[in-house]
């Protein structure tokens, strides 16, 4: 059995390998400490997860400055809602990622994004949607998702990925893929249904 590292053990990067069990355990402890109003715990949680959350938010918001501003809201929200995490059994990174994604999506569709319209757009590498997706950063539990994702049609994969990773709406996806809105909606609906079926097997 691996020794239990203290929450602030900084020897290895949890980001590079988000799936080690101790990572879940330590993040859960840090969230509990936030619920008990320990600001140092929030700082540690920030050091360990903010780079990953920011990457996801920049993908959605395209502008780093806007994403960094929204990231502040995310950590204030984590601080306020830490007590609610106990009640769920899920993995802490999925919870943190959800708070970050929902905030980014809300900001993307608000007037606030307008203020940054002229700000520099972050240059990001294209996502690989066709064929070999790179899942190495996603950890062990993503193996099942990766396998099920490969069973979808290319259109379903593209639609789901554009929505989840880039924050694209149905209309955005229709524009990018030059397909009718109804077609796009059906890709996504069917893709999600297939994913669910596959992941529950």
């Amino acid at each position: 059995m691996a020794p239990k590292a203290p929450p602030n053990a900084a020897g290895r990067s949890p980001i590079a390998n988000p799936d080690v069990d101790t990572d879940d355990l330590e993040l859960t402890q840090l969230i509990a400490a936030c619920a008990a109003r320990n600001p140092q715990a929030l700082r540690q949680l920030y050091d360990r997860t903010a780079p990953q959350l920011l990457a996801c938010m920049v993908r959605i918001l395209k502008r780093r400055a806007l994403a960094e501003e929204a990231l502040q809201d995310v950590f204030v929200s984590i601080w306020q809602r830490a007590g609610q995490f106990e009640s769920r059994r899920g993995r802490p990174r999925a919870w943190l990622m959800s708070i970050a994604r929902y905030r980014a999506i809300d900001v993307l569709r608000s007037e606030r994004a307008e203020l940054y319209r002229e700000a520099e757009i972050e240059q990001l590498p294209q996502l690989v949607t066709e064929g070999g997706m790179d899942w190495t950063g996603a950890g062990r539990s993503a193996a099942a998702l990766a396998r099920c994702f490969e069973l979808l049609t290319a259109d379903q994969r593209r639609g789901i990925e554009l929505a989840f990773v880039e924050g694209a709406s149905h209309a955005d996806i229709a524009r990018v893929t030059k397909q009718p809105l109804g077609t796009v909606k059906s890709w996504i609906r069917r893709g999600l249904a297939s994913l669910r079926q596959c992941l529950e097997r």
Binding site: A50, Q52, G90, M97, W135, A142, V165, L195
Partner: peptide, 17 residues
């Protein structure tokens, strides 16, 4: 949230200012 989070966890981390 659990099912799909892996899609975003693949992204290379970015250090905040």
């Amino acid at each position: 949230e659990e099912r799909l989070s892996g899609l975003a966890l693949r992204l290379p981390p970015m250090r905040p200012s």
